Simulated assay, not measured.
Amino acid sequence: MYCPFFQFDKRPFPTCLHSDRLFLSPDHQKGLTLIEYGLTSEAEIMILTGEVGTGKTLLGQHLRQRASSNQTIGMINQPHPVFGHLMAWLLHAFDIEATDNPQHAWQSFLVEQQEQGLTLLLIIDEAHHLSNELLEALRLLLNINNDKQLTLQILLLGQPQLQQHIAQPALTALHQRIYLRHHLSPLSYLNTEKYITHQLLAVGSRQRIFSYHAIMAIFYYSQGIPRKINQLCDFCLTYAYAKAHITVDIETVLEVVQAQQGFEISHHTIEAQAIQQQIQQQLHVQL
Rank of each mutant, 00 (worst) to 15 (best):
D125S: 02
L86K: 11
A105G: 08
I76M: 09
P102T: 13
T119W: 00
N101W: 11
G74N: 03
L110C: 15
D100M: 04
L122F: 03
A98F: 14
N70G: 13
L90S: 05
P102S: 10
L86M: 14
E115K: 05
I123V: 06
W106I: 06
H104M: 15
N77S: 14
E97F: 08
D125H: 03
I123W: 00
I73G: 03
N70P: 04
I76Q: 02
T72H: 13
L118F: 07
L91F: 13
L120V: 03
G74E: 07
E97N: 10
A88L: 09
A88K: 04
S108R: 15
L86N: 08
I123F: 00
Q103W: 03
G84I: 06
F94H: 05
I124V: 09
H104S: 15
Q116W: 01
A105P: 04
S108F: 10
L120I: 03
L86P: 08
E115D: 06
T72C: 14
V82R: 14
H104Q: 15
W89I: 05
L91V: 11
H104T: 15
P79V: 13
P81S: 10
I124T: 04
D125I: 01
W106G: 09
I124Y: 03
L90W: 05
W106K: 02
L91C: 12
I123T: 00
N70L: 05
G74F: 07
N70S: 11
P102Y: 14
Q116L: 04
Q114D: 05
H85N: 12
L122Y: 03
I73A: 06
F83Q: 12
G117N: 07
T119D: 00
W89G: 01
G84D: 05
Q114P: 00
I124D: 01
E97Y: 08
A105I: 04
S108M: 12
